[in-house]
Structures are given as C-alpha cells and as structure tokens.
Amino acid sequence: MADHEQGNQSKDPLQPLVGPATSAYLQIKKIFQLFLLPVFITFFILFGIWLLLSGRFDLFHISLGVISCMIISFYSCDLLFSQPVNRRIPLVWFRFIKYIPWLLYQIFLANIHVMRLVLHPQMMELIDPKIITFKSRLKSDMSLVTFANSITLTPGTITVYVSVYGDFRVHIIDQASGQALPGEMEERIARAFGE
C-alpha cells in the first residue's frame, strides 16, 4: 500500500516549484517515475520484511535495516520493476488478492484427485501421461508467469514451456486434469490483470 502514497506524491509537490507543462517539470517527473519511484517501493517492501523477520524495534537494529535496505533497493530495484511504474498497480494487487482464495480451493480439489490416483491399487491403468499444447490469449509477462505458476501449483498439470507469445506446453497426468485447462483459470487471471 506504500506505492499508492508514492503515486499520489509524484504529482502534487512538484507542481508549485516548476510550471505544470514546462519541459523541466516533465523531465523531473520522468526521472521520478523511471528511477526514484521503483527505489522507494522496493525500499518499503524490503523494510517491511526486515521488521517482520527481525522482530526487535530498538534503534540499532532499525538503523541497520534502513542502511542495508537502502543499498539493496538502490542497486537492484530493476529486478522487481522491469517496466515503468503506472498508476494501476494497487488495483492489480487488490484484484490479485481476490484471485488467491479461488486458487487455494482449486489446489485443494486437485490435491484430493491426485491423492486418490496415488493410493489407487490399479494406478497404472488410470494414469495416462502426455504433453498437450495450447495457445493462451494473455499478453503481459506478469500474467503469463502467474498463469504458468498457477498451472504448476494445481496438481495433475505441470508447465513444460512458455513462450513470450503465449504458447504453452503442459504435461498432464490423466485425461480429467487436462480437460479444463485453458478455461476458467485463464479468464480469472485476465480479469485480475485487466486484459
């Protein structure tokens, strides 16, 4: 939620200093969006994790955390945000959190299915492993990665290969788990990422 505050601040404090539409203002805003904003967001995420993991709130530990988080976020913020930050990120996070309970329910159902398959006495007749291919309509990198990881998390299906254009190769263990594949999950991810 720290990124939401930063997104609002990028407009307000700079406007009285330089005129609204001058080239200097635009340049400062561009620098801010390209470099400073990712550094700040990365710093707040890392510092939250530091506070959670250390669990001590005296001056010495917190100052150590601030120094190390600043160094790390300065050098490696481009790992977390490879594209420029836009305004829609809090909305995407909110919709992504709404997607998680459905994913957990789906993982639970599929786990029961694979458990039945594992403990079945005639397992060799039931399973039918093969590799299927299909084409997805998702475009952005983040949604493709989320879709591939969701496929791998639901048991019975493993993503073998994903191309940038959305070609998937998936290894399935029996016919039932591969049937519903590019259906509802893709639709929900597309809705979560706004595509």
């Binding site: 694979v114 639901t154 263990i173």
Partner: peptide, 8 residues
C-alpha cells in the same frame, strides 16, 4: 513423479 513430489 514430479506431480506428487512438487505439489502434494
């Protein structure tokens, strides 16, 4: 074998 190993 990866199916039960990774996800169960």
């Amino acid at each position: 074998r990866l199916h039960p190993a990774g996800k169960l």
